[in-house]
């Protein structure tokens, strides 16, 4: 069965999220800072009257590098996802296409991936020019107890 994915880039790595969990995409808006919040939560934005948390996805996934971090203009879009009634916005560098991919190309997460990233993945799709890593939104939104 083919599935559709909303895809984007983080640090030049290609990521995707199942499209039925993506509520919408909004352009970058400066979030209101939340003092004392964890560093991977950048703040709050006002999405048509709803206040939602913005997550620095790179930090959450543990793939941020300090050098790229400083170029904050690299953040272009917010991918707003909705997982079991929780609406959260994920900051991404660059948006890519919506891709429809068949099960044939699907593989479980490559064992060679670093540990932190691996726990957030559903798996990967083989693409013509490399891999598309598929995130599990529920895992991404999991908060440590």
């Amino acid at each position: 069965m083919a599935q559709q994915f909303c895809t984007f880039y983080l640090n030049n790595t290609h990521f995707g999220i199942p499209i039925h969990q993506v509520q919408e995409i909004v352009r970058h808006q400066t979030p209101t800072r939340i003092p004392l919040a964890e560093s991977n939560v950048c703040g709050l934005i006002n999405l048509r009257g709803q206040i939602i948390a913005v997550i620095n996805l790179k930090r959450r996934l543990g793939i941020h590098t300090e050098i790229i971090e400083q170029r904050s203009d690299s953040v272009q879009y917010n991918v707003v996802i909705c997982v079991s009634d929780e609406v959260v916005s994920l900051q991404v560098d660059q948006l890519d296409d919506i891709l429809e991919l068949g099960d044939d190309d699907f593989e479980p997460s490559p064992a060679t991936l670093q540990g932190t990233l691996r726990q957030f993945l559903q798996g990967a799709y083989k693409m013509a020019n490399g891999f598309l890593l598929v995130l599990d939104p529920a895992k991404v939104l999991e908060t440590k107890p």
């Binding site: 209101t32 003092p35 959260v88």
Partner: peptide, 27 residues
């Protein structure tokens, strides 16, 4: 008053957030 959601639930310093007249958010 709007709730802060699960991502921020461990922050006891805030009860929620609100949208001010100019559309900005205040905790």
């Amino acid at each position: 008053v709007k709730p802060l959601g699960k991502q921020l639930k461990e922050l006891a310093v805030y009860t929620g957030a609100t949208i001010l007249g100019d559309g900005q958010i205040a905790l």
